[in-house]
Amino acid sequence: MIEHRPFDTLGRIERDWLEARLHFRFGDTGRAAHVPLGPLYIWNDDEFAPYSGFGMHAHANVEIVTYVRSGAITHEDNFGNTGRIEAGNVQVMSAGKGVLHAERNEEPGPTQLFQIWLAPRSVDREPRWAMRRFDLDAQQGCLTVLASGKPADVQAGALTIDAAARVLGATMLAGQALVHALPDGASAYLVTTAGRVELNDICLAVRDGAACIDERKLTIRALEDTTVVMVELLDV
């Protein structure tokens, strides 16, 4: 089953500096049917206005993966980690037993990003932070593992997350197709960015999401140039 979540059906948070669309219901915001998928319980499509963002605030016991689509975001935390995460870069923060951090757009233009929250396998671990650039354009039409809870993926270059999940991405040109087999018992959530794709027999418009449950194989066909990001939830 593929549950199509069109962009215009997503929950919305608006501030004078932030526009956010919520693929999963958060508190009272969003559709009641947009429930978590395994350990995946937040996927926000955020746009930060120039010179704005979140000041220091706390998180605990959550794995946060940030994929920057355009612009850049600046990270700072109470463990001394700082970084400027540019478009194409991925940031992972394991909040563990507790971390204070700030996320701001210090750029002259807007920043667009996906922020993904996953429930950790274990609680109250030591916090961790890392970032890495992935050149998806160099492997067009192929899924690259960006972050993972599987040691083999980490050894191959993915960022580490303490969750039963893998975060993957692919840049696709119009007309390209790829086939991805899901492991037994796994589900997935996929979002497109700048262009339309066909996922099995469902057409996804720009920034639509799709929850894939009890599907053994996903065929992704790019109808336009785009990048897709997918979280695979593992039955482990």
Score class of each variant (00 low, 15 high):
1 M>D: 08
3 E>A: 09
4 H>Y: 10
6 P>C: 12
6 P>K: 13
7 F>R: 15
8 D>W: 06
11 G>D: 06
12 R>I: 13
13 I>H: 04
16 D>R: 12
20 A>Q: 10
20 A>L: 05
21 R>F: 13
22 L>C: 03
23 H>E: 04
23 H>G: 12
26 F>A: 12
31 R>A: 15
32 A>L: 13
32 A>S: 11
35 V>E: 13
38 G>M: 00
39 P>R: 03
40 L>V: 02
41 Y>W: 10
43 W>T: 04
43 W>A: 11
43 W>Q: 02
48 F>L: 15
48 F>V: 08
50 P>V: 12
53 G>E: 13
54 F>W: 13
58 A>M: 12
59 H>I: 09
61 N>W: 06
63 E>K: 00
64 I>S: 04
65 V>R: 11
66 T>C: 05
67 Y>I: 15
68 V>I: 12
69 R>G: 05
74 T>F: 13
74 T>P: 06
76 E>R: 10
77 D>L: 03
78 N>K: 07
78 N>R: 03
79 F>Q: 15
86 E>W: 11
89 N>E: 15
90 V>H: 00
90 V>D: 01
91 Q>V: 10
92 V>S: 09
92 V>P: 00
94 S>Q: 00
94 S>M: 00
99 V>S: 00
101 H>Q: 05
102 A>W: 02
102 A>T: 02
103 E>R: 00
104 R>G: 03
105 N>H: 07
108 P>Q: 02
111 T>K: 12
112 Q>T: 14
113 L>Q: 07
114 F>I: 02
114 F>R: 09
116 I>C: 05
117 W>S: 01
122 S>K: 08
125 R>W: 07
125 R>F: 03
126 E>R: 02
128 R>M: 01
128 R>V: 02
130 A>W: 00
130 A>E: 06
131 M>R: 12
136 L>H: 01
137 D>G: 12
138 A>H: 09
138 A>E: 13
139 Q>G: 14
139 Q>T: 15
144 T>R: 04
148 S>D: 00
149 G>V: 01
150 K>S: 08
151 P>Y: 04
154 V>A: 14
154 V>Q: 15
156 A>G: 12
160 T>Y: 11
160 T>N: 15
161 I>V: 15
162 D>A: 08
162 D>H: 03
167 V>P: 01
167 V>G: 00
167 V>T: 02
171 T>H: 14
174 A>L: 09
175 G>E: 13
179 V>D: 14
179 V>W: 07
180 H>A: 14
180 H>R: 14
181 A>K: 14
182 L>P: 06
190 L>A: 08
191 V>F: 04
197 V>F: 13
198 E>Q: 15
199 L>W: 09
199 L>A: 13
200 N>L: 10
200 N>W: 10
200 N>R: 11
201 D>E: 14
202 I>F: 09
208 D>M: 09
211 A>Y: 01
212 C>E: 08
215 E>F: 10
216 R>W: 10
222 A>V: 06
222 A>G: 06
223 L>C: 03
224 E>H: 05
227 T>P: 00
227 T>I: 07
228 V>A: 09
228 V>S: 08
233 L>R: 05
233 L>Q: 11
234 L>R: 03
236 V>F: 11
